[in-house]
Design a binder for these strands. Structure first.
Length: 490
RNA sequence: CGGGGUGUAGCGCAGUUGGUAGCGCGCCACGUUCGGGACGUGGAGGCCGAAGGUUCGAGUCCUUUCACCCCGACCA
C-alpha cells in the first residue's frame, strides 16, 4: 500500500516550489515544459554532480564536452537510434533574424537558411562517435572513458516537472572499448555505480536489472537500469547504462587495428542520469510537512535558529550561536545561522522544515542558562534537548544516522510494496495500489504488450536473481525461467 | 492530436437574474509582540487573457481567438 501521501498532487507542487519553478518565460509554446532551477534546488544538483563525478573519476573516467548542435545527417546513421529520437527533436533551420518589412518585430531571414539543419542534441552518441572515429586507430587508443555534463532537449508531447522536462541537465558517459567483454563489464560497472549512488547519496533503494527489448534505449544491444519506487506506488527509472555493441562504431565507421594487426569495430557503452533524480529524491522522501532532504545532499545540513526577545538577549544568543556555527563548520558541516530579525522564530522553524533541512538547532535564553541546545529532526519530526558540550561531534553522528534512517524508511517502504503475484486476475486488482510486482512472464513482446495495454503496467526490469526460480507466465501459462519486475511507472 | 478544465491584484481565489472591482496570503508604514507559520491600525497594488458583438450599461450574455492546466497517445 502506498502511503497516505499518494495522489496528493498538491504536495508535489509544494515540494517542488522550493527547488524549481515552471518556466513561464514565453506566452507562446517555445519554452513550455522547461524549468527554472532555483539556487536552493541547484545546490542539490551540484551536490549530486560532485558525488557522481567523484565516483566516475574513481572508476577511471574523465570529463569532456561535445557540441550542442548535431548535423541532421548524423542522427540518421544508426537506424534504431533515429527511429527512437526523430520524433522529439528541436531543429535549427536558420542562423539569422531580420526586421519584419511589413511592420514591427523580427522574422526569420529566409536568406539565412542552413544548408543542413542542426538538431539540438537529445543525446550525444552520434556526435561523439563521429569524433571518436578520428581518435581511434589502434587498440592502444582504447579504452576511451569519457563523461560529459550537459543539457539536452527532447521535445516530448507532454512534459512533467522534474520527471520529463523539454530541456534537462544530465551527465552522459560514452566509452569505447577493444573487446565486447570489456564493454559489457563497463555497462555493468556503471549501473552498479548508479545503484550505490542512489543508496548512499539519495538514500534510495533501487532494483537493478536489464530492460526488455521493447524498453531498450534506441540503438542499444542491452539496457541496464535502476528503478526506484515513489511514495505513490509508481516506479521511476532513475538511471540507465547501455551496452551499445558495435552499432555506433559501424554507423560511424570507427575501427581500430588490434594486436593481431586486424581491423575491428569498436565496442561501446553509454550511461546517464539526469535532473530527474531530484524528482526521485523529492517524491521518495518528502512528507506532508514538506521536503525531506538526505544530509549528504542537503545544501544546508544544520540550521541554527536563535530565540530571544529584546536586543540584549538577541546579542547574547547570537554571539553564542556564532561560536557554535564555527565549531560545526570546523567539522565540515554545511551550516546556516538564521539571524534574520524581521521574522519570528516560529516562522523560521516552519520555513526550514518545508525546505527539508535535516537538523535544526534552536538556542534561547533557557538554553544559555542550562548550557543546552534543542535539536529538531526533520525526518522524524522529533525534538530533544542536548547538552552543548560536545554537540559538534554529536551532530556529525546525527548526519550519518539520519542518512541511514531515511534510507531504511525508503527500503522498508519498497519491501512492503514488493509482491510476488502468480495470478493475472490478482495482478490486475493489486496493480491499482501501486508497488513492484514480481511475476513470471513468457518472455514474448506480445504478452508484455498485452499486459501494458490491459493494466498500464510495464516490465521495469529483469533482475539477476542469485537463484532464479522458474515458473509459468501469469498470462499465458507458458514456461518462464525467472520472475521479472512489473510496475506502473512515471 | 483526442477528452475534460481554467483564464479577475505578485500568488491563491470569490464575484448572484447584467448596475461603481472584491476576499485571503503577500507587499509598504507605524505600534505592540517574539520557545512552532503573531496581532492591530493605516496604505499601495486591476484594460477582469485578447478581439468583435448585443445593451442605456458587460467580469457576467453571444461569436471568434489565444494561452495555460489535467487525463490519454510519445518518452529518461
Amino acid at each position: 500500500m502506498a502511503k497516505e501521501i499518494r495522489n496528493k498532487e498538491e504536495n508535489y507542487s509544494e515540494w517542488y516550489n522550493n527547488l524549481v519553478i515552471k518556466s513561464d518565460l514565453a506566452e507562446n509554446s517555445a519554452v513550455r515544459g522547461c524549468m527554472v532551477i532555483k539556487p536552493y534546488g541547484y545546490a542539490i544538483w551540484e551536490k549530486m554532480q560532485a558525488e557522481l563525478d567523484r565516483r566516475f573519476k574513481e572508476t577511471g573516467h574523465v570529463n569532456a564536452y561535445f557540441p550542442l548542435f548535431i548535423p541532421k545527417s548524423f542522427l540518421s546513421k544508426e537506424a534504431e537510434h533515429v527511429e527512437g529520437f526523430a520524433k522529439e527533436c528541436a531543429v535549427v533551420t536558420h542562423h539569422r533574424l531580420k526586421a519584419d518589412p511589413d511592420g514591427k518585430g523580427l522574422i526569420v531571414d529566409p536568406e539565412a537558411k542552413l544548408e543542413e539543419e542542426l538538431i539540438v542534441r537529445p543525446t550525444s552518441e552520434t556526435i561523439i562517435w563521429n569524433t571518436y572515429r578520428n581518435w581511434i586507430t589502434s587498440y592502444r587508443d582504447l579504452p576511451i572513458l569519457i563523461n560529459q555534463w550537459a543539457n539536452v532537449v527532447r521535445w516530448e508531447m507532454r512534459t512533467r516537472l522534474f520527471l520529463r522536462t523539454a530541456e534537462f541537465l544530465w551527465q552522459e558517459g560514452h566509452t569505447a572499448h577493444a573487446t565486447e567483454q570489456e564493454a559489457i563489464e563497463e555497462t555493468r560497472q556503471m549501473v552498479e555505480v548508479y545503484a550505490e549512488f542512489a543508496k548512499e547519496v539519495l538514500a534510495l533503494p533501487v532494483w537493478v536489472g536489464a530492460k526488455t527489448p521493447s524498453e531498450r534505449f534506441a540503438g542499444a544491444v542491452e539496457t541496464l537500469c535502476i528503478e526506484a519506487l515513489m511514495q505513490d506506488g509508481r516506479a521511476l527509472q532513475a538511471g540507465t547504462s547501455h551496452f551499445l555493441g558495435q552499432n555506433f562504431a559501424k554507423a560511424f565507421d570507427v575501427q581500430f587495428t588490434n594486436k593481431e594487426g586486424k581491423l575491428e569495430y569498436v565496442w561501446a557503452t553509454s550511461w546517464g542520469v539526469s535532473t530527474r533524480l531530484m524528482g526521485a529524491m523529492v517524491m521518495a522522501h518528502s512528507d506532508n510537512n514538506g521536503l525531506v532532504i538526505p544530509p549528504v545532499l542537503a545544501p544546508i545540513q544544520v540550521v541554527l535558529v536563535p530565540i530571544y526577545r529584546g536586543e540584549e538577549e538577541r546579542e547574547s544568543v547570537l554571539a553564542h550561536l556564532d561560536d557554535l556555527k564555527a565549531k560545526l563548520l570546523a567539522k565540515g558541516l554545511r551550516v546556516k545561522l538564521d539571524d534574520r530579525d524581521n521574522v519570528r522564530s516560529g516562522f523560521k522553524f516552519t520555513e526550514w522544515e518545508v525546505k527539508g533541512v535535516p537538523l535544526r538547532i534552536a538556542v534561547g535564553p533557557r538554553d544559555l542558562a542550562n548550557k543546552t541546545v534543542e535539536l529538531a529532526f526533520r525526518d522524524t519530526l522529533k525534538k530533544e534537548i542536548h547538552p552543548l558540550e560536545g554537540i559538534e561531534d554529536k551532530v556529525v553522528q546525527i548526519m550519518k544516522d539520519v542518512q541511514e534512517n531515511i534510507y531504511k524508511k525508503a527500503l522498508d517502504f519498497k519491501e512492503k510494496n514488493t509482491f510476488e503475484i502468480d495470478s493475472y486476475e490478482d495482478f490486475k486488482v493489486r496493480i491499482e495500489d501501486g508497488g513492484f510486482f514480481l511475476c513470471h512472464w513468457d518472455g514474448t513482446a506480445e504478452t508484455e504488450a498485452k499486459i501494458k495495454e490491459e493494466t498500464k503496467a510495464t516490465i521495469r526490469l529483469i533482475p539477476e536473481w542469485d537463484n532464479p526460480v522458474p515458473g509459468r507466465c501469469m498470462v499465458t501459462g507458458k514456461p518462464s525461467t525467472q520472475r521479472v519486475v512489473f510496475a506502473r511507472a512515471y
